[in-house]
Design a protein around this nucleic acid. Structure first.
Lengths: 148, 148
DNA sequence: GATTAAAGTTTACGTTTGTAAACGATTCGT
DNA sequence: ACGAATCGTTTACAAACGTAAACTTTAATC
């Protein structure tokens, strides 16, 4: 064991990660600047989060001179997808389609996005089911509450 | 001020909320039972979360005899959408379409879901933009990192 | 070469969360 | 009517988080 990436970051740490992902490689100075701007954080605050992310195994350090350049151990895309998966673990499988439909109708989409989405849906048709099975524990979703 | 619903619950509290949403009105006994099953929580643990949710203004109490029946102040749908909105605040607007496409390709969808999604997309076409504007702070996404 | 500036590490401390037992009031069974 | 079972409330306590100053080491400046 040791440096296993645990894929669980807080909202504040996520802010730091975004700066790192945006840059690929970045100094603490740059991270501190960006987040002082956006979040109003004191340098010390950002330093704490950077340190915790290194400990959590989310950030790698490359020695540049005697300072560090930070980089992400996990890609932003991978991370976002993982987190979204986590999110949907709170929602009944039956509801996922509807939920996404709602998000989509609120989102700003480009023609290209729409084309991509339609493509995905077209492909999905081939593996679509008649009824999505509920994956919830009894008593935790409408599909299987036992009323009395 | 006083009972403003703050719409922010922890993962554990979310488990409680799901039981309440599933039942509409429910006793603590029932909540405790379901979560003892699913989470292996001791009754005291569940009681704590129920109490905190009442304090947070997420749960209402109806007096039934001298016990309570709990009900949610916010609908599950509303809550999920709100939380998803929160989630996407961590992602550049430009990426939202692609991200949703990825989730969709992993999800189990029914024919009905797909039809609904296609309908939504069809409607979206009319308001689609050529290029989704980036909504990120400089230095926090690829759209506007200033390399040097 | 001594002073200062910068960067990483330690320490600090209040709040929130996870986990639960203890307590107090009440109701129900006998 | 008395003891037992319930249910809500209080108290407890460690770990995680948000926020940040202090300290240490190293590098750069004069």
């Amino acid at each position: 064991m040791g440096t296993e990436t645990d894929f669980k970051v807080t909202d504040s740490e996520w802010e730091v990660m975004r700066v790192v992902w945006a840059h690929g490689q970045v100094s603490s100075k740059e991270i501190i600047n960006v987040l002082e701007q956006k979040m109003g954080w004191k340098p010390g605050t950002t330093k704490t989060f950077i340190g915790r992310l290194v400990t959590k195994g989310m950030l790698d350090t490359q020695t540049e001179g005697r300072r560090y350049l930070y980089s992400a151990k996990v890609s932003e895309n991978k991370f976002v997808r993982h987190s979204l998966g986590d999110f949907f673990s709170h929602v009944c499988n039956k509801e996922v389609g509807k939920t996404i439909a709602e998000v989509l109708s609120e989102a700003t989409l480009s023609h290209q996005d729409i084309a991509l989405l339609q493509e995905v849906l077209e492909a999905k048709k081939k593996v679509a089911v008649d009824v999505v099975p509920c994956n919830c524990v009894p008593g935790q979703c409408h599909c299987n509450v036992h009323h009395h």
